[in-house]
Simulated assay, not measured.
Amino acid sequence: MEEQYRISDPRVLKAVSHPLRVRLLGLLRIEGPATASELARKVGESSGSTSYHLRELFKFGFIEEDPEQRDGRERRWRARHTYTSWDAAELSATTEGREAVRIMHLRQAEMVGRLLGEFDPAAWSRDWVDAAGMSDHVLRLPPAALREFYRRAEEMLRDLAAEHAGDPEARQVIAWYGAVPLPEDKEPEDKEKEEDR
Rank of each mutant, 00 (worst) to 15 (best):
E155T: 09
M111A: 12
T95S: 11
R171S: 05
L139Q: 08
L139K: 04
I63R: 03
R21C: 06
T50I: 09
E2K: 12
K42P: 00
W176R: 10
M104I: 00
A165F: 04
V112H: 03
E56Y: 05
L115G: 01
D167R: 05
D9C: 00
F119H: 08
L28H: 02
M156L: 10
E187P: 00
L141V: 09
S37V: 09
Q4P: 00
L139E: 12
E169Y: 07
T35Q: 09
E187H: 01
V180D: 11
E96I: 02
R11Q: 14
E68F: 09
E31S: 10
P143E: 15
V43W: 06
T94S: 14
G166L: 13
A175D: 07
A15Y: 02
V12Y: 03
L157W: 15
Y150Q: 05
A40V: 09
L28K: 05
E118C: 01
S47G: 00
E155Q: 14
L24A: 05
A40C: 05
V12L: 14
V16D: 03
H105F: 12
A161V: 07
R41W: 08
K14G: 13
H137Y: 10
D120M: 02
T82E: 15
R107S: 07
S51K: 13
E192R: 04
E155F: 07
K59W: 04
Y83C: 11
S46A: 09
A34S: 14
L141K: 07
E148N: 11
G97Q: 02
W176S: 13
S92D: 10
H18A: 14
K193V: 13
G97A: 07
W86A: 06
I103Y: 05
I174R: 09
D159A: 14
G97M: 06
L139D: 11
V16E: 05
D66T: 02
A122D: 14
A161C: 05
D190Y: 01
R171K: 11
R6K: 07
K191G: 15
V16M: 13
R107Q: 13
A79Y: 08
E169P: 00
R102N: 06
K191C: 00
E118M: 02
I103A: 11
D71R: 10
P143A: 15
A122Q: 08
S37W: 07
L28M: 06
L160Y: 04
D127T: 13
V129Q: 14
E195D: 13
A123D: 10
L57N: 05
L106H: 12
E154D: 09
